[in-house]
Design a protein around this nucleic acid. Sequence first.
DNA 1: ATATATTTTTAGATAAGTCTAAATATTTAT
DNA 2: ATAAATATTTAGACTTATCTAAAAATATAT
Lengths: 222, 222
Amino acid sequence: MTATLTHTEENYLKAIYKANEKTKEAVSTNMIAQYMNTSPASVTDMMKKLSTKGLIIYERYKGSRLSSEGSKSATSVIRKHRLWETFLVQKLGFSWEKVHDIAEELEHIHSEELINRLDDYLGFPKYDPHGDPIPSADGKFTLREQIIVSQLNIGEVGVLVGVKNHETSFLDHLNKCHISLGTSIAILDKSSFDKSLQVHIDNDHQILLTHEVSKNLLVRKS
Amino acid sequence: MTATLTHTEENYLKAIYKANEKTKEAVSTNMIAQYMNTSPASVTDMMKKLSTKGLIIYERYKGSRLSSEGSKSATSVIRKHRLWETFLVQKLGFSWEKVHDIAEELEHIHSEELINRLDDYLGFPKYDPHGDPIPSADGKFTLREQIIVSQLNIGEVGVLVGVKNHETSFLDHLNKCHISLGTSIAILDKSSFDKSLQVHIDNDHQILLTHEVSKNLLVRKS
DNA sequence: ATATATTTTTAGATAAGTCTAAATATTTAT
DNA sequence: ATAAATATTTAGACTTATCTAAAAATATAT
Ligand SMILES: [Mn+2]
Ligand SMILES: [Mn+2]
Ligand SMILES: [Mn+2]
Ligand SMILES: [Mn+2]
């Protein structure tokens, strides 16, 4: 059991896991194709393969769900991804916008002993540099109270605990705004027209957050 | 230029590099097949491909040599392998017999920034956990005076600085003999019949080293 | 120098992962 | 309830890396 999977199989399982986090239902072929940046035809091929291997439950025209075996594999890949990102930032001094792409490669290194030693070396971190929870060796996530920053009311203050987008361009934009994990964001005004937010950053400077930006900011109300 | 190579291409280049270290001549198809654990037919296919890409100089029936471009790539992979091994031992506490296989995967992570930061993090080590020299970012190796332990005469003493075999089984054997890098080995007797060596380890205990073992031990005369 | 042995290449297949275009099923809108 | 739109699957092809078996070239030994 737990035969070694290819990078590609692992990436598909991760895609199904992430897509399912949102929809909570069986994930459509098209949605997986979008996540994987491939054609729907390729997805169908792979769904048959993963289904045969017992990693997903797949029904023609009905979509796919992870089996418990598949879920375990997906969680393990996510654990590796997030631990490596944490290593890159905390030990090697990378900035948070640089680490995702490298971790996309590192997450496929198979040794479990390696990742468990890394976890130990990092002090068993609960969250990665983007605020995403890191599953423990037995697959448990540490959840946390968090809301999208736009759910705060005028006058309320939140502390940034996570971002929902890992793209370099997005994180670079936050860097320019002097926003990082731990930054306090106070709501000064909310536009009902374009959903933009006027905010006070770290009691230091005022800026306007477009909806495009604010919908990716997760805060803890403070 | 320096297009990204596949894991397989990198492994072939490394094999040619290592084979050439011994023979110093163009490397035969069969020799590469042995190193790579594949069929000679597969090697021929790959030689054509690497030749087309300008990474090797290949002549039908005459063997292959690395081009300067190919040599650069091979050296870069070796650098990654040895730095990762050093990380695994020095930071994560792995024993030297466990790290080779994991490094075989890690050596294919492509980011140059990653490996240069890792090098810095490790303090720019010159040798890996098996005593092999680690090429610097510009591809230079730090060489050292070393001989095979059997070249010592009776009464002479050497300090182990490297091993020529990275297999877990071999290193495990050394562990059992309490031999590791830095261990002193004094020659008590040499058998001309089976080339075995009677030695004194760390002025502590006496053992017999078979030729199979001693031919893989590199020492600095002391 | 000729036969034999060895090495290397070619030919033809296979498996994984991908694609486009065509066929089919499902969903949505009238 | 039908037609139109959308989603999904199938068919057929391509690429990479591998294999075995057969053919060709080179090296070795008599
Ligand atoms: Mn990431
Ligand atoms: Mn992350
Ligand atoms: Mn090694
Ligand atoms: Mn080594």
